[in-house]
């Protein structure tokens, strides 16, 4: 009885904390219904009275292609990230390569280069290869945000896989590739989900690369769709915020579904001993 009460008390505290945390998000939703004339009203409207649906109408009529581009870019980024980083994580964790140390250090450094510097370099690379303003070009650039992180996660996770499991596979006559493919990868499912989720979210919300590398073509992601409402001399804030609200729905769904694995995935290997 007392314990149930205590648990309920925690729920109340949790709800209050969540409300506090999400207030800016509420404010964004509020702005998505506000006319531009009321945006700077003093005192502000706490709820969207006399609101407008113009923002949402604009989104539904203009933004759907951008959303599907973003989805495609996100998924391809996930695929590229996994292909590059999962084998590397396995090698660094289990095969103890000579020079692996230098490689890991290079990854650490890579992670520190500010996006805008990377973007300028990429612009030159993509211009000369003709990949500017294309989806593959942006996918490659977006994956650079996630790859160093992904290798780190995979290495940490895979090094916690018991050596006996791999030894058993080897005595069964499985080659290293088969060991990797049919034992290491399935066991690392949580790490795969975690890496995928992070890679997807980073690609989904990337703006620096998109605006530098893809702002000219017909394949633009949603962050640029938002930016089109910020014109040279005018800004349609309700449309911007409505787009953000709509765009965050698929990402939220994904996050809620993936939550379970993420919790187990990121650091499961790191705490054991």
């Amino acid at each position: 009885m007392n314990k149930a009460l205590k648990r309920r008390g925690k729920t109340v505290v949790g709800v209050v904390l969540t409300a506090l945390m999400l207030f800016p998000v509420y404010w964004m939703v509020n702005a998505s219904f506000t006319t531009d004339a009321n945006l700077r009203k003093n005192p502000p409207n706490l709820i969207p009275i006399g609101g407008t649906l113009a923002g949402y109408r604009a989104v539904l009529s203009q933004q759907l292609p951008y959303l599907s581009n973003s989805l495609l870019i996100g998924l391809l980024t996930v695929a590229l990230t996994l292909v590059v980083s999962a084998p590397a994580g396995y090698a660094l964790a289990k095969l103890r390569p000579k020079g692996g140390g230098i490689l890991s250090f290079a990854l650490l450094v890579a992670q520190m280069i500010p996006g805008i510097i990377m973007a300028m370099g990429f612009y030159a690379i993509l211009l000369s290869t003709g990949w500017i303003n294309t989806i593959p070009g942006l996918v490659v650039a977006d994956s650079t945000i996630a790859v160093p992180f992904a290798v780190l996660i995979f290495t940490a996770f895979m090094s916690a896989i018991p050596e006996e499991l791999l030894q058993a596979a080897v005595t069964d006559g499985a080659g290293r590739f088969r060991t990797f493919w049919s034992i290491v990868l399935p066991v690392s499912r949580n790490a795969v989900v975690t890496v995928s989720l992070f890679a997807f979210l980073w690609a989904w919300s990337d703006f620096v690369f998109a605006s530098t590398l893809d702002s000219g073509g017909g394949n633009q992601p949603i962050t640029l769709g938002i930016y089109h409402y910020i014109g040279n001399n005018d800004q349609q804030w309700n449309a911007i915020m409505a787009t953000a609200v709509v765009a965050s729905i698929p990402a939220t769904v994904l996050l809620v579904i993936a939550q379970k694995y993420v919790a187990a995935g990121i650091t499961a290997g790191s705490v054991k001993d």
Partner: peptide, 15 residues
């Protein structure tokens, strides 16, 4: 509630 805490992460920074 924990999942909701992650929502800010999903918003484009410009927003």
């Amino acid at each position: 509630l924990r999942a909701l805490f992650l929502v800010p992460w999903l918003l484009p920074l410009i927003v």
